[in-house]
């Protein structure tokens, strides 16, 4: 039950893009075409999940025991940067086809604040769902949260890319062309997502 609530809340209610504003730069950057949006979502999903597990363990077994929580920001970003590099190298060797699909997005992901944002949220924020007492997430819940959050990222990204493909063919006033009209579209989408609030 708990897992299910985390899942629903992370995908719809607290959608990482439309409610938490994390990872907006790549969202605006690569959402021109549905195919690139899917690729980026896949890469983000992969990296967020992996990074959350690694940083969670790092925090739990290295930083907290030694009272070094103030090094969270600096150690997390370095771990994420190293991780992304490693994923790139490993993917290239093991699965060239997957690398072809996700490879070009990987270098962009280090500076995607969604990854660091989720990693920090998981170890610093308390969660309370469905009337349960507030508590820190355990590893299992953290993984569910990470997967669900990145699915939410993918959902918003692909929906938006679909809309944007249609926008491209429309006659938009000159000053609105490009990003402004895209931002206004996201605004309306975010309004629709507000309707999910309160269901968990």
């Amino acid at each position: 039950m708990e897992y299910f609530l985390i899942f629903v809340s992370a995908i719809f209610v607290n959608n990482i893009l439309l409610a938490q504003f994390l990872g907006i730069c790549p969202f605006l950057g690569v959402s021109n075409k549905l195919s690139t949006a899917t690729g980026m979502s896949g890469a983000v999903c992969f990296v967020i999940t992996l990074a959350t597990v690694v940083t969670y363990l790092l925090n739990q077994y290295l930083l907290v025991p030694f009272g070094l929580e103030f090094l969270q920001t600096i150690s997390f970003i370095l771990v994420i940067a190293a991780l992304v590099q490693m994923v790139e190298i490993v993917l290239k060797k093991i699965s060239p086809s997957l690398y072809q699909a996700l490879g070009i997005f990987l270098p962009l992901i280090t500076t995607n604040c969604a990854v660091l944002g989720v990693a920090i949220t998981v170890v610093t924020k308390e969660f309370a769902l469905g009337g349960a007492a507030p508590h820190m997430l355990n590893l299992g819940e953290a993984v569910v949260y990470a997967v669900a959050t990145s699915l939410g990222y993918g959902l918003a990204m692909c929906l938006f890319a679909g809309l944007r493909e249609h926008l491209a063919g429309n006659d938009v006033p000159k000053a609105f062309k490009g990003l402004p009209i895209a931002l206004i579209t996201v605004g309306i989408m975010a309004m629709a997502f507000l309707g999910f609030s309160g269901i968990v």
Partner: peptide, 9 residues
């Protein structure tokens, strides 16, 4: 004392 409200804790 903390509970879950509408938007979070």
């Amino acid at each position: 004392s903390a509970t879950s409200g509408f938007g979070g804790i």
